[in-house]
């Protein structure tokens, strides 16, 4: 590139050009400093992972889910946090050793919408806000229609979590994708990224907001809902902690839902309370996942709608009022 040709330059002498070349080298040096500083910042960012002291003194403690664990005494800190912070910590750590999984048997769903009602009640949702919604599906014109309850798939490669700019939505060690509405900035990138349309937004003041004012925020139940933030299915993380099945699973009158722990290879039917092997259930019934080609690796499985117990009928429920 020739200096004299740029619109911003004047006709500099050769000498000046030489000095400008030296300056360029100086700039290169600056870039080098930048690289070094970047590496330093990166290193300090990871030092926390390596730095762990051990005293050798082991203590036995009872965890939240009733397990005895051995912990190094240096790692034990008194929980002086208030309830909200405690909720947030537990809400991010999840229930150790678990990998929650849900199986939805489409042959049994007759769109009773009991799951939806239970869910909306628990999470203080308006009628048009669904963590769980039963869709009337027909895959191709030649195939039979069926009802498909659809909630957050709690993907193992969650596209929604990847795009969140502030870590407000996150995946827990036990597989649940949660949303912390105290941190959500309301950019709705996660909604755009979710291929399952599983996320909802509090466009207007949440239901009965006045009644829930000042209530302590429970990240595992995502209540009280907050204006201008995201909400979504949480696999009823609060119920799992108590050893109970999720609200929707428990509310189903038609044995549609199984819920359990993949690590235990067991799922429990919410209606009959029968516990069966997950692998066998999926194998015997041709279990599948929604849109596996997207690589999202859902934690919700579906059993195909064959030998349906109930005939398909067009949903007759009224569409919620405009909001």
């Amino acid at each position: 590139m020739d200096d004299s040709n740029t619109p911003h330059s004047n006709n500099e002498s050769e000498n000046q050009k030489g000095s400008s070349r030296r300056d360029f080298l100086k700039n290169l040096g600056l870039a080098g400093v930048g690289v070094a500083a970047g590496a330093a910042a990166l290193y300090s960012g990871h030092i926390f992972e390596a730095k762990k002291e051990v005293s050798g003194d082991q203590k036995v403690l009872l965890t939240q889910d009733g397990k005895l664990v051995q912990v190094d005494s240096l790692e034990i800190k008194a929980l002086e946090k208030n309830g909200k912070e405690l909720h947030e910590t537990l809400g991010r750590e999840g229930i150790p050793g678990r990998r929650w999984v849900m199986v939805t048997d489409l042959s049994k769903c007759r769109n009773a919408r009991k799951c939806i009602n239970a869910c909306q009640g628990a999470h203080q949702l308006r009628p048009e806000q669904y963590h769980m919604n039963t869709l009337q599906m027909q895959d191709t014109p030649g195939t039979a229609p069926y009802n498909m309850p659809k909630n957050c798939q709690h993907c193992d490669n969650p596209p929604c979590v990847a795009v969140c700019p502030v870590d407000a939505t996150y995946k827990r060690p036990d597989g649940i994708v949660l949303i912390e509405n105290d941190r959500c900035i309301g950019c709705r990138f996660c909604m755009a990224a979710c291929p399952y349309s599983a996320r909802i937004f509090n466009w207007i003041e949440p239901k009965d907001a006045a009644n829930h004012q000042g209530e302590e925020y429970n990240v595992e139940l995502n209540v009280p809902q907050k204006l201008g933030t995201i909400s979504k299915c949480l696999f009823s993380a609060d119920r799992l902690r108590e050893g109970k099945l999720p609200y929707c699973v428990e509310a189903c009158p038609n044995s549609v839902y199984y819920f359990g722990d993949e690590n235990e290879d067991a799922v429990t039917n919410g209606t009959t309370k029968e516990t069966v092997r997950l692998s066998k259930l999926l194998r015997d019934n041709g279990g599948y996942q929604l849109m596996p080609e997207l690589g999202t690796k859902p934690r919700v499985y579906y059993l195909p709608p064959k030998n349906r117990l109930f005939p398909f009928e067009e949903a007759k429920d009224a569409t919620p009022e405009k909001v």
């Binding site: 919604n133 869709l135 009337q136 399952y196 949903a315 569409t319 009022e321």
Partner: peptide, 10 residues
């Protein structure tokens, strides 16, 4: 979207 939009206001 990939899945149908149902049971919501117009």
């Amino acid at each position: 979207p990939f899945l149908p939009i149902q049971h919501v206001p117009q």
